[in-house]
Design a protein around this nucleic acid. Structure first.
Lengths: 138, 138
DNA sequence: TTTATTGCAAAATCTTTGCATGGGA
DNA sequence: TCCCATGCAAAGATTTTGCAATAAA
């Protein structure tokens, strides 16, 4: 029994071909490109000969999100991107020209955030930080 | 000469009725509701008897954005919202129990963000930071 | 078999654009 | 007058949904 099948069952999802293929795709993603739009996933499936409809891609990704398998980001790009949930917190840099997404983690920012809210009498539960950038001109 | 007219001229935009009305609407917004969708603006104009097309609302808001008069946000709501640019950048702390929203500005985080993206060969264009918190238990 | 899932197409949203008309400088 | 701006409708782009056919358990 494959790892994908186990994960799908654990999530309460019937093991079907589109779900397995999409989960495999997300898990085999290169470390420098783990953010997929529904269109990205659809195109990748078509290229590898899998005949899966775009509507199904949307449905499966939405189910994966509900099951906690993926995280959906709504960056300012006009479309959603999906990322496999690996449990490691990170923030995002989004290039406004290429659409490229870079993950980063910075201790200075993380601890500063915690201190800022504690100074105001709160505990930090979660946060969302996205840096929108453009390639340096000079 | 009204303030709106001056602002429009300064932005290099011809002073037209739709532009003046939309700018007025944004400037008269209550402090607790400064985020408008194009549809919001369109509806408000219709209700005050101004016959402006929705396409024009989009065009004007886009021009205002290009001119730096407004900021466009793409929240998770599926549609853009526009906010008058008042020059005071701030981030947000959101209390998950009371819903309270606190604005803050922190130089350490701001400069660290800039450095992080510049180390990677980018210029920081914009950013979005929201801290989700809970009242401290102890 | 039995029910959830899929594929397709159509619809629902939100936003932009082409083009002829109208309004501001 | 001279164009820019506008209104309308149509087109785009992204995402969702209805429904009959299909596949998993």
């Amino acid at each position: 029994m494959s790892i994908e099948n186990q994960e799908l069952r654990k999530a309460g999802l019937k093991v079907t071909l589109p779900r397995v293929k999409i989960l495999q795709l997300l898990e085999q993603a290169e470390s420098d490109n783990q953010h997929f739009s529904a269109e990205d996933v659809y195109r990748a499936l078509m290229e590898s000969g899998e005949d899966v409809g775009l509507a199904t891609v949307y449905r499966v990704l939405t189910q994966f999100e509900a099951a906690g398998l993926v995280t959906r980001h709504n960056f300012e790009t006009g479309h959603s991107v999906f990322e496999l949930e690996k449990g490691d917190h990170h923030d995002h840099i989004v290039c406004m020209e290429s659409g490229e997404v870079i993950e980063f983690y910075d201790d200075v920012i993380e601890s500063r955030q915690r201190q800022l809210v504690e100074d105001r009498g709160f505990d930090l539960v979660d946060h969302s930080l996205v840096l929108y950038v453009r390639p340096k001109k000079s």
